[in-house]
Amino acid sequence: MTALLRVEHLTMRFGGLTAVNDVSFEARRGEITALIGPNGAGKTTVFNCITGFYKPTAGRIAMAPQGALDTAAIDALTRSGARGRNGLFLLERMPDHEIARKAHVARTFQNIRLFSGMTALENLVVAQHEPLMSASGFSLLGLAGAPRYRRAERAALDKARAWLERIQLIDRADDPAGALPYGDQRRLEIARAMCADPALLCLDEPAAGLNPRESADLTALLRAIRDEHDASLLLIEHDMSVVMDVSDHVVVLDYGRKIADGAPAAVRADPAVIAAYLGVPDDEVAAIEQEIGA
């Protein structure tokens, strides 16, 4: 499998605090990569650097939405000073909205950020802003009701309908997103990110606050995204059953450093990982010990 995202020597400092310290890893095409670690390890900060919400203090983040990452090409692009060319992008140079639009990286948030006063359907349509906007020709074609815009809008609604059916929310399409139960909001946020047509989908703790049945549904959804929608996933997760079940590749952070990187089975047996998790509350340790059969 080829990599589509390569993070190299990523460092992020907030004043005196080094939240992410020289972290390097890759996310491969068609795989689910999990980023795990105790609270405060710097996982969300890594996400914020990848998606452009933070400018990293140091490091390079290369992304190839379609093609393959090629070290020589990345180096050439780095020297050229450009943000991206020929389907290769250096994310640390791009503003957040360009990362989403051009490098095709979409994300969800640890605290759900839906457009709560808009309906579930509207949320999914807003995510398709880019194709709709170009079809509406500076809104002039749209104002005139041109056939080209109508076609694009119909396609957007069809896509939204397919996703609402996929996450079993089609009956609540016309309800405000803020009125949905928590678990539904989580799935809606994932569907909204998918409507933005990402090559890489970054999910920040998607299983947080879900009951076991909802967690199982989520796992199935994540697999479907990987297998049917041609998107790779980068996943932050605390729920170890979800991580071990669904991920192809696990990266472990602790105090901002990478302490392990490999297949789930190898990572769960890694003494450094077990030790890192001993620093967290007892019930979590017990849960993890049960998971890994220690």
Binding site: R101, F115, G142, R192
Partner: peptide, 24 residues
């Protein structure tokens, strides 16, 4: 139209807008 939905989305959550590729 997309432009109007983007206005309202901006009112609802600017950060989510940017994560979806809207140039706020």
């Amino acid at each position: 139209l997309p432009i109007g939905r983007a206005w309202e989305a901006l009112r609802e959550d600017e950060i989510a807008c940017r994560a979806l590729g809207l140039d706020t």
